[in-house]
């Protein structure tokens, strides 16, 4: 009986952990989805990534690189919202997402704000000990909001190695060894 209880608890814990990966702070993403004219939602947990990896062609450079990246990931979540006109998402919506990333584990390594184009991009790494265990990209434009969450060991070195693949640039990122939050590059 105890064993069954333990198994049930384990299954529930796994389910909760899987659910917790693709988070939606305060239902912000759901609200944004309702307002958006176009929505891209990609939700791939580890098992789906492994499954997809089996269909990526190792002979194709892009797919081979993708296969290499996702082999390390525990989750890949992308939510991109396209709006008909500016003002359909608010600062509060963005702040709700940013608040989640203010935790001690998160390091903002890039914060780009272009006043002329109204384009902002913030890149965060999740640090656990001396390792990076996740990457979040929050990009906003007047009529677009994109949230990318890569769960798993993605390092700046990995990003550099990806230069040219999928158009991912060689991002020159140098995480603060002291782990200071909010450092801008």
């Amino acid at each position: 009986m105890k064993r069954i209880g333990a198994i049930v608890a384990l299954v529930l814990a796994v389910q909760l952990a899987a659910f917790a990966q693709d988070w939606d702070p305060g239902g912000t993403l759901k609200k944004l989805s309702a307002r958006a004219s176009n929505t891209v939602d990609v939700t791939l947990d580890q098992s789906m990534l492994q499954f997809a990896g089996g269909f990526l062609n190792s002979k194709d450079p892009d797919e081979a690189q993708a296969k290499n990246i996702i082999s390390k990931l525990k989750g890949l979540y992308v939510h991109s919202f396209q709006f008909d006109k500016p003002g359909q998402y608010t600062e509060q919506d963005v702040a709700a997402i940013q608040n989640y990333l203010k935790g001690p584990d998160w390091i903002r390594i890039v914060d780009v704000r272009s006043k002329s184009e109204g384009q902002n991009v913030q890149v965060y790494f999740k640090k656990e000990g001396q390792q990076f265990k996740g990457l979040v990209v929050l990009a906003t434009q007047p009529t677009q909001l994109t949230f990318v969450d890569l769960v798993g060991p993605i390092t700046p070195e990995d990003l550099r190695a990806l230069g040219g693949q999928f158009g991912i640039p060689k991002v020159e990122v140098h995480p603060n060894p002291a782990g200071k939050k909010g450092e801008s590059k």
Binding site: V40, A52, P169
Partner: peptide
């Protein structure tokens, strides 16, 4: 069919990630 869909989703997700990182990189 499911595998192809998952593969397309992976490539789409990485392309979106890439495009946003490119904006950051170019701006930097």
């Amino acid at each position: 069919e499911k595998g192809e869909q998952a593969k397309e989703q992976v490539m789409l997700a990485l392309q979106i990630t890439s495009s946003k990182l490119r904006i950051a990189s170019e701006s930097v």
